[in-house]
Write a protein that binds this DNA or RNA. Structure first.
Lengths: 134, 134
DNA sequence: TTACAAATGCAACTTAGTTGCATTTGTGAA
DNA sequence: TTCACAAATGCAACTAAGTTGCATTTGTAA
């Protein structure tokens, strides 16, 4: 079922069904927190080439399967699901103890005042603190 | 006057008064937007060594003279003044046209709900949009 | 004015990510 | 089924940001 779900998703997004992509997709679907290149590489059964993996992360991101998160750690992380956008209330929570990055949904929209002449398109929020597991 | 101001600030923070630091400090004091390593290097009259510049950016940051901003561009930027902290309402505005990063002060504190068991320590906000100059 | 810690400059290194190119693989049509 | 072609993969080489070790220089306080 899970495998078929992945296949359908790839097809639907116009991406070829390859071994790497299937493994990658299954990996992301099983997690509710964000993963760096290294996390993903380490989790895959078979080592996959660096450029291939990076290229697939980018393809998945463009297809809206995963979204990139910058948690200020210096390395990009990715999590399953569409990117937070205007009107899409979504923030990221970074645990200061275990470094895990979670997507937080359903926040009340932010009301931020910006100076005269500035126009807000999007608000990105990173919350730092301690997660439920720590 | 400006020079004396810089000298006083360095002394007050327990940092030796060197040519590089004076130039760096004057540069930051004259700007109301953030600067990357490359921006700073390009603005200095005399090229200064990479490691020296990075080390000084770090010292200034530790001393609270400047603060580091991650605008998700992949390179760290620094702006004059203390870092935003808990209770210090301060966000960063990134212009999507000119890429300039501004510090926005005096925002109303954010009320964010996090899931059960999560504890918020700090909220970092990046606002994307179009700045007054664009 | 000198002594010492701290700052600088240089070179070498690290880490994340990218690019060009040859080879392989998936898919759709014959 | 197999063929054909685009797209995906793997490899190697590269880039860019930032760091580190170490020898030399400089600022400061005695």
């Amino acid at each position: 079922m899970r495998t078929e779900h992945c296949e359908r998703l790839l097809e639907q997004k116009g991406l070829k069904k390859t071994k790497v992509r299937m493994a990658l997709l299954q990996h992301f679907m099983n997690l509710d927190y964000a993963q760096s290149y290294n996390d993903v590489q380490g989790a895959l059964v078979k080592e996959v080439d660096k450029s291939t993996l990076y290229r697939n992360l980018t393809s998945f991101e463009r297809a809206g399967i995963i979204h990139r998160i910058d948690d200020h750690s210096g390395v990009a992380k990715y999590a399953f699901g569409e990117a937070p956008m205007q009107g899409n209330d979504h923030a990221h929570f970074v645990c200061e103890r275990c470094e895990t990055v979670y997507c937080i949904e359903g926040l009340t929209p932010l009301q931020l005042e910006v100076p005269e002449g500035f126009k807000t398109n999007q608000v990105q929020t990173i919350i730092r603190g301690i997660c439920a597991d720590c």
